[in-house]
């Protein structure tokens, strides 16, 4: 089985979010970038398929040279090879078109992406990719097993979960549950050394069009000061929630 794991390169959650150029660009000054957490769960599950079922695992990112350290980290975790499509990720559709080309050229059977990236939170790329390459698609995926071309997956739904059967070729929108946090691997020295020898191929983009454009960013209005209520006067909280906040 040939697996492709899509890696989105995102600011760590603890980063300060600021914008420049008249609030049109994300300010990357001092921001630490990481593998999107949903992708890390997927990559770790892919390692299981590699070790237990002899699958090969490549990782891909659509982005500029600045994303290479993130791809190297994925190699250090254990992926065999990395691909970077050398173009800015302008919108979900444009990224999906680039990924579709990579999947077709590489003949991948299983594509593991994340249910959403934590920067843009679009939740678009995996579904659009599946639509473009006419593969089956399961998102919010919390369990994945493959035997031959038969697949059993569990999807989180509102208020529960759903077990489905499907077949390869398949695109997954993964999340925690595919593996648990305790299964995540911190790259060790040997992994990091080996990652330096592994191929990181830069490919040029295909022509792709965008459908949406970011016009401007805004920060939420500053929050008013918290109202503290005396623990001996809990009734006051009930009154405030009813009369002021109007939520009960």
């Amino acid at each position: 089985m040939k697996i492709l794991v899509c890696i989105s390169h995102v600011p760590d959650t603890t980063s300060k979010i600021n914008f420049t150029e008249g609030d049109t660009k994300f300010d990357t000054t001092g921001v630490q970038f990481v593998i999107n957490p949903n992708d890390e769960f997927g990559l770790t599950r892919a390692m299981w398929f590699k070790e237990k079922q002899g699958a090969s695992v490549d990782v891909v990112n659509v982005g500029g040279p600045e994303t290479e350290p993130t791809l190297r980290k994925a190699l250090a975790i254990g992926a065999d090879a990395a691909i970077r499509v050398n173009t800015a990720a302008t919108d979900g559709f444009a990224v999906a078109q680039q990924l579709a080309k990579v999947v077709q050229d590489g003949g991948y059977d299983l594509v593991i992406a994340g249910r959403e990236s934590i920067d843009y939170n679009g939740g678009m790329v995996p579904g659009m990719l599946a639509g473009l390459i006419k593969a089956n698609f399961v998102t919010n995926c919390i369990s994945l097993e493959v035997e031959g071309t038969n697949v059993k997956a569990v999807r989180e739904i509102d208020g529960g979960k759903e077990t489905v059967s499907t077949s390869l070729p398949l695109v997954i929108g993964g999340q925690k549950g595919l593996v648990e946090e305790s299964d995540l691997r911190i790259p060790n020295m040997r992994g990091i050394m080996m990652a330096r020898q592994k191929p990181l191929k830069v490919v040029e983009p295909v022509d792709a069009n965008t459908e949406t454009a970011s016009v401007k960013f805004e920060k939420p209005a500053p929050k008013g000061a918290i109202k503290l209520i005396d623990p001996d006067n809990v009734e006051e909280l009930v009154n405030l929630l009813h009369n002021e906040a109007k939520v009960i």
């Binding site: 678009m124 659009m128 698609f137 919010n140 739904i157 459908e211 949406t212």
Partner: peptide
């Protein structure tokens, strides 16, 4: 933005060549 709507919207976008904004 239910789990189901978020699941189908990107597929619908491809079916119709439509741009999609979530959230």
């Amino acid at each position: 933005s239910s789990a189901d709507s978020k699941y189908l919207a990107p597929l619908l976008a491809i079916d119709l060549d439509a741009g999609y904004a979530s959230n």
